[in-house]
């Protein structure tokens, strides 16, 4: 079973600052990491390979330093890694990103399953997975928390919904997004680390994947961020006073006054 895992490099913290001059995000000084949700996707890919054979390909799109997370993916069990990196890709929204990834996947060509994390920790959209699946013409199952069975040309999964989980069967090739409940990602092995050091991460430009230039980067993006700002957090914060009994007494009184209770 050949698997492609899509991963993204994200800032290691979500405590970001805004540069008041340029009104853009300040990213310097923050360590970059593999998007936490993507490490579950990678682990699931490696786990499936161990059960059914085949190979795991890690794929990312981003600036040259995103190579770091692809090496990490190799250290954790991926067999090969590709990075789509090109200045022309800057400013891509989810539509342009999913198109670009679809071109890279077409070039990799040989796969049964594409796995991604449920969303990224920076953008939080969760849209690239389903948009990519549609662009590739693949069936898509979101929020997978368990792969129950892999059969000939099909796969049975559990996916989380608001009030429980659904058991879903889909034909292969397919694409899924996974949630953290699916597994516990492993740490890189010593052998993996050694392999990651010497392995080649293949870097592709937009031309290498024969991308339609009108569908990538800013040109290919339908949406545009026009403003970023800090959320207006309502400050309330009245701490009750007195001994514990008195505080509870006051609270119950306030609740009664509010007529909710």
């Amino acid at each position: 079973m050949n698997i492609i895992v899509c991963i993204k490099q994200v800032p290691g913290t979500t405590q970001v600052k805004i540069d008041p001059q340029t009104n853009s995000l300040v990213r310097q000084g923050t360590k970059n990491i593999i998007n936490p949700f993507d490490s579950y996707a990678l682990e699931e890919g490696v786990h499936l390979k161990e059960r059914f054979g085949g190979k795991v390909t890690a794929l990312s799109m981003g600036p040259p330093q995103a190579e770091e997370i692809l090496r990490e993916a190799i250290a954790c069990g991926a067999d090969q890694a590709f990075l789509v990196s090109d200045r022309l890709l800057g400013g891509s929204d989810t539509l342009a990103t999913s198109y670009t990834l679809s071109r890279a996947i077409r070039k990799i060509a040989d796969f049964d399953l594409v796995i991604c994390g449920r969303q990224t920790a920076d953008g939080d959209t969760g849209q690239v997975g389903p948009e990519l699946a549609e662009t590739m013409g693949l069936p898509f199952v979101a929020y997978v928390n368990k792969i129950e069975e892999v059969g000939a040309g099909q796969i049975r999964l559990q996916r989380m919904v608001e009030d429980g989980y659904e058991v879903i069967e889909t034909s292969l090739p397919a694409m899924i997004s996974v949630v953290k409940e699916i597994n516990v990602p492993r740490l890189p092995s010593l052998r993996g680390l050694a392999r990651a050091k010497s392995a080649a991460v293949i870097v592709w430009t937009a031309a290498d994947i024969e991308a339609d230039m009108s569908r990538i980067g800013l040109n290919g993006s339908a949406t545009k961020v026009i403003k970023i700002f800090f959320p207006n957090r309502e400050r309330r914060g009245e701490k009750l006073q007195g001994c514990m009994e008195e505080q509870v007494e006051t609270l119950v009184q306030k609740l009664r006054e509010s007529r909710v209770v």
């Binding site: 929204d93 989810t94 539509l95 999913s98 939080d124 959209t125 969760g126 849209q127 997975g129 389903p130 948009e131 990519l132 699946a133 549609e134 662009t135 898509f140 979101a142 929020y143 989380m160 919904v161 608001e162 993006s221 339908a222 949406t223």
Partner: peptide, 23 residues
């Protein structure tokens, strides 16, 4: 932006080649 909406609306946006803003 339910589990259904967040999974299938992006596919509609991809079919129509238009923009979508999440959540």
């Amino acid at each position: 932006a339910t589990s259904l909406g967040r999974a299938f609306i992006p596919r509609v946006a991809a079919i129509l080649q238009t923009g979508l803003t999440a959540d």
